[in-house]
Design a protein around this nucleic acid. Structure first.
Lengths: 235, 235
DNA sequence: GTCTATACAACGATAGAC
DNA sequence: GTCTATCGTTGTATAGAC
């Protein structure tokens, strides 16, 4: 988990530095040191406010108060309010794209491939929780093109699962009539990890426990022989 | 399906009449005939606008244009903008409560019980699609009390599934280590029917096909003996 | 690079004529 | 029961001092 974070540069100063360099062209503040510091404050505050009462309901005056940066000051970092949401979606999509690209390892056994995809994605969601939640809930507010790209990305993730399923079918390990529906169901369950965090907290379910449950359920649906025994073996 | 609609009065004039009588005390317009007619126009227009760009982003001027009712006129039907959202959530929750209450039939075989719950809920979502989507996406904008009630309702639905699962376990029909997680997963899959309508449309999946898929997957997870054969038998 | 001050459009909401 | 006209507020965004 910690290794995963470091491997993808998903936290700390290096991460925010990468976010900064992704759109420094749109920013007036050129000094990286101060720009990175404040950009993190702005985006973090946006998550706090938007994930509590919605991005549209959050005003830039709220954001100014929360960050301690004046209204005028904010506009040195963002082009407009909508631009802020757009940037956040863009960063997350870029990162997911990058991780998804690496998640494809056709040499692995189908079961291990599924495990890699599920664990990889749930790690991602766990680490970038507010990013996922924000993009899920505020997608409507972005322009049509960005909405389409987000949908395409989700379909690409589903395809990743479908490919692994079909590889298992052709190897005689799995039986599945509707791989598309099964993949969509797994994606839905993964998204629950950020959408329904309150429920997992209430039932005291850990991330590892949940990932294992998703994989195990999936293998049962695939009528995988070692489904029951795989619980202890894979850890 | 049609019988289901009629049985629960989920469509047409009788439905909107019921909605009207639920909040006629809050409305200035007392003539039922005209009140019901316009209330339907207002709520339908709210769904169109809010489900396209979000409730907060929708202005009452938008709503006025869409309904053909003047700004001043709108306030004869709603107390405030937030009141409108609150009313919508209240109506849906009342109806779900009513249907859920009837879905408990302890005499049924556990498998039939699960099928009744899944089919009942997906019928509900299908018929009241915009209501569900609106309440899911705009819950953050409502007051804490209403948010809590919505969460309680979802937990109550999960419990319905857990009860049926446990009844099957004690009868020796099912095997399940974590009924709570399985129930949450089924709830998530049902919610997809309104959350990800675009995906099912893209893959040309019908409601009946999807309901069957959810039930079948669930039975496999429960290691139900007749899982494979149940597909043809239950229709 | 950050602030204060301000522009001005759009918002929710109401009063009062009809 | 519905409209027009208008109130006061709040929103995003910018100009210009420092």
């Amino acid at each position: 988990m910690e290794a995963f974070k470091r491997a993808w540069t998903l936290e700390g100063e290096p991460f925010w530095s990468a976010v900064f360099f992704m759109h420094q062209d749109k920013m007036q503040v050129k000094n990286p040191k101060v720009a990175i510091f404040n950009l993190e404050k702005i985006i973090t505050a946006t998550f706090k406010l938007a994930n509590a009462k919605g991005f549209q309901a959050m005003s830039l005056r709220d954001l100014s108060r929360e960050t301690g940066i004046s209204m005028g000051g904010l506009y040195a970092y963002i082009g407009s309010k909508n631009d802020l949401a757009s940037v956040i979606e863009g960063v997350l999509r870029t990162y997911i794209d990058r991780v998804i690209g690496e998640l494809v390892d056709e040499d692995l056994d189908p079961v291990d491939r599924l495990q890699a995809i599920i664990c990889g994605e749930i790690f991602m969601i766990q680490i970038m929780n507010p990013w996922y939640y924000f993009c899920y809930m505020e997608l409507k507010g972005l322009d049509k093109e960005q909405q389409q790209q987000a949908m395409d990305l989700e379909l690409r993730f589903d395809s990743l699962l479908v490919d692994a399923i079909q590889s298992g079918i052709s190897k005689g390990q799995f039986v599945c009539e509707k791989p598309t529906l099964l993949a969509a169901s797994v994606t839905a369950q993964l998204q629950q990890w950020h959408l329904k965090h309150w429920k997992f907290k209430l039932h005291e379910v850990s991330m590892e426990e949940y990932a294992e449950h998703i994989l195990e359920s999936m293998l049962r649906c695939l009528q995988y022989e070692g489904a029951a025994r795989s619980i202890g073996r894979r850890k």
